[in-house]
Amino acid sequence: MLSKVSKDWLGAGFVTVLGLAILIFVPILFDLFEVLQMTKYVVLSLFVLSLAYIWGFGGILSFGQAGFFGLGGYVFAVAAINMGQTTVPFLIAIGACALFAAALGYFMFYGRLNDVYLGVVTLVVTLILWKLINHTAGPEYIIGKARLGGFNGIPSIPIMTLPWRPGQEMEPAQMFQYFMAILIAVYVLLHALIKSKFGRVAISIRENEVRTGLLGYDVRFYKLCIFSIGGAIGGAAGAMWASYQTFVDPNIFSLEWSAKCLIWVMAGGVGTLFGPIVGVLALEYLSFQLGQTELINNLIVLGTILIFLVLLLPKGLFPTARDLVVKVWRRRGGSTGKGSP
């Protein structure tokens, strides 16, 4: 019989080991182009974790997760261009996004906004950020050495430099490993957080907000914390994205990114951390393949997938498949769990 702690960590430990194996072996086994491609998936996986956490384990559905993604990217770009190294700008970007999320969260959670209102406010905040940044094309919008550039975006953003040797840019393989290490660390930390007392309270808020409040927990404060953590992770992913692309433009704030993030989480299943990462890999690979044919507009595909998921697979692909496997397993006479409620 497994002890409780090891049971909690069985799946996560497996995922961590898998992640470490990818971190070590991918740069050895694959060529440069493929490693660069995979770096993209790593960044987007981190991005999706931000929403997977706040939606799946805090019950907060943000329609504007791209807001933090974009903000992180822009703050990182401006700071990195001014400072010439990337470790401190990375931290600044994360901090800025956490603060922004906290400020926004104050208005939303202390105003006790719920479902529809929460979705609309987060969506509109992202839209306004998009408009604001689009508007900064003039030469007067300059922060230190960095011009914001409006709809032209910010070009030549520094590649991540080695944390212990500022000034030396990472090789693609090093960047892949650095990002992968961050992804694994965030995954493990989130898992630990979910299994902690804080995480259990957060889940109980998701299940029944009123009851949790009546038990004496300050629901608003917990939600604020969850939302800020999500914002910080989204910001980190944005900074990594900006550095990976060496370019960022206002479309990073677009509704398309927010929608993509939602679709990945829905496809992978709300309430897991690993599922949404699978969602990223599957759907990004699909849209990459479809994009190569150039026959089908990407938005049509995204929209169709979203409607399809909502109508037919509200639980998501990953949990549905898991349930199906369990069902078939039981029917074939496997006695696991039979009779237990």
Binding site: F63, L255, L299, I300, I307
Partner: peptide, 14 residues
């Protein structure tokens, strides 16, 4: 909300 969002993306693309 999610379904109408999907519809929105679909219409823009279409």
């Amino acid at each position: 909300l999610l379904a109408t969002w999907g519809l929105s993306l679909f219409l823009i693309g279409f």
